[in-house]
């Protein structure tokens, strides 16, 4: 496997969306290739970072009240 092949699927690899056979190939390449190993770590860290920083915003209570009220009126 070439690094270019690895780069094209690294996100999907991290998603766990590649076939088992493919995952083994990617894992093998990663073990032998320092650059691709680092690349994988960076992608993973960046994704975790984004997820953490974009913490879910809960719906405000007044919206929940309003929704339930409007649904009951709509009935």
């Amino acid at each position: 496997m070439l690094c270019d092949d690895y780069k094209r699927v690294v996100y999907f690899f991290l998603d766990g969306s590649v076939s088992q056979r493919r995952a083994v190939e990617l894992e093998t390449h990663r073990r032998d290739c320092h650059d691709c190993d680092e690349r994988t770590l960076v992608h993973r860290k960046l994704r975790d970072f984004v997820k953490k920083r974009l913490a879910p915003i809960s719906a405000p209570e007044h919206l929940k009240v309003r929704l339930v009220q409007s649904l009951r009126i709509a009935e």
């Binding site: 879910p56 809960s58 919206l63 929704l67 339930v68 009951r72």
Partner: peptide
């Protein structure tokens, strides 16, 4: 019957309000 359906919807849909709002 309509009331039941409305209640059913409310029960099914309200748990997703935070996700949708986000």
């Amino acid at each position: 019957y309509e009331h039941e359906q409305g209640w059913d919807f409310e029960k099914a849909a309200m748990p997703y309000v935070d996700s949708l709002y986000n």
